[in-house]
């Protein structure tokens, strides 16, 4: 019988009796989210190599103003301030960005990984004060529902981009011809994963039936959204990876580093 004296209950950053690799998951989230933010920011500021044939990078869709044939309203407006950097992505990326930033899954993940609040379950924190989402600034996370509506519109726009990605220029006629390329498949998988992530949103689940106590009157929508919601974390990561991969593929094709393979 060996006595090991303990003078006080553990408090303080990182103190825990846990023996497992509790730091691995927060570290992986930190690395994954940081890599995405760095890449997305770099790609958004490039303003070039975001289209290739019928493909449009999801970071740049919808292209409201821009130089490519995908632009809705033509080139950059003449009134755009010269000092302000311009890229078609900068006009639209804040909306899906804020949708993810205020997402319930990501909130829980980055509070742990970036703010150590807590670093992991039953692991000591670095600070004593705490407001949570009870007051400013984190009370603003409640705006998630408004970004969700925009994200739903983006899913429709990205699905339309996949349709456009099936029509390749035909040099013989000068028109377009139906076809499927590797890029079409990549953009297609991307929009499916983004839809699974967006349609499994907790706010959407609330709006399609969660807010009601009579579930029997909600039809199938609540059950479907709940099914996707159960895999929200999985789709959050898969869609993050796919949207980054889609941009990278279009970019490498546009730069001539990759050759897009036409399946038919």
């Amino acid at each position: 019988m060996q006595v090991i004296p303990v003078t006080a209950v553990r408090r303080g950053f990182g103190t825990t009796s846990r023996r497992d690799t509790w730091w691995a998951a927060p570290l992986a989230v930190f690395v994954g989210l940081s890599a995405f933010v760095v890449y997305a920011t770099w790609a958004a500021f490039q303003g070039a190599h975001y289209t290739y044939g019928p493909y449009l990078s999801p970071f740049y869709s919808p292209e409201i103003f821009g130089d490519s044939p995908h632009a809705w309203f033509g080139p950059k407006p003449a009134a755009w301030p010269a000092l302000l950097p311009f890229s078609p992505a900068l006009l639209i990326l804040p909306f899906p960005g804020l949708f993810r930033f205020t997402c319930y899954y990501y909130r829980g993940a980055y509070y742990k990984s970036f703010w150590a609040d807590p670093p992991s379950c039953a692991v000591g924190e670095p600070r004593k004060s705490y407001w949570g989402e009870h007051s400013f600034p984190l009370i603003l996370q409640n705006a998630h529902r408004f970004f969700m509506w925009v994200a739903l519109v983006f899913i429709a726009l990205l699905a339309y981009d996949v349709w456009l990605a099936m029509w390749f220029p035909d040099p013989a006629t000068g028109g377009t011809v139906f076809g499927i390329g590797i890029g079409t498949l990549i953009l297609g998988v991307n929009v499916v994963l983004l839809a699974c992530y967006t349609w499994g949103c907790h706010v959407l689940r609330h709006l399609v039936g969660g807010r009601r106590d009579d579930q029997s009157q909600c039809g199938m929508a609540y059950a479907c959204v709940s099914g996707l919601n159960g895999r929200h974390q999985l789709f959050a990561w898969c869609s993050l990876f796919s949207v980054m991969s889609s941009d990278l593929y279009v970019r490498l094709c546009s730069m001539g580093i990759l050759t897009d393979l036409r399946l038919f």
């Binding site: 319930y104 909130r107 829980g108 509070y111 742990k112 609040d117 807590p118 379950c121 039953a122 705490y130 407001w131 949570g132 989402e133 009870h134 007051s135 984190l138 009370i139 907790h202 919601n229 159960g230 929200h232």
Partner: peptide, 25 residues
Amino acid sequence: GYCNITKCCTKVCPEHIHITDNAII
């Protein structure tokens, strides 16, 4: 509002109740 949805409660629940996703959120 103090809950910041870190889901630790869900992870330790011996009855596997989805506390965060089905109750708190």
